[in-house]
Amino acid sequence: MERRQDIFLGLIFMGVGAAAAWMARSYSGEGGTYPMVLGILLALLGSAVAGKALRSGAYVDRQLIEAPTKMVTAAAACTVYIALVAPLGFYTSSFLLMLMLPAALGFRQWLYAVIVALVFTLVVFLVFSVLLEKPLPRETLLSLLSTGG
């Protein structure tokens, strides 16, 4: 496992480094030399990691993800949340995340979850919107209600 992971890691860094060096070609003067050197260096280091693993890598078991379903669930929820923040509004999507993610991970005490979600969203609202007056994505729900009413 560890050996294959390191070879793969080395290859990725080689790719990134080579791509960076290639792109830096077109940059003018000293502004281009530096990133090109860095790109080449990164590619060399990547090949060193891959090469070392090829030569002496032991087949030690190293788990990349401990609980893949849980990790993917959380990462996917985060992705969906980020995608929804702008169109849906910040507080609506946050509240949804507070309810859905624990449920997706197997949390079944609904009342507990709703209370925590409400309290937490309220605290965030008070701190960011009231106290600090930070502009956050506007609530679509709220503007729908106000035009409807």
């Binding site: 995340l97 507070m98 993610l101 937490f120 600090l132 930070k134 956050l136 994505p137």
Partner: peptide, 17 residues
Amino acid sequence: VLLVPSILILMCVGVYV
């Protein structure tokens, strides 16, 4: 499990502002 979404939200608001 309740901490997971809470921290995610704090991260996002912190980055967004």
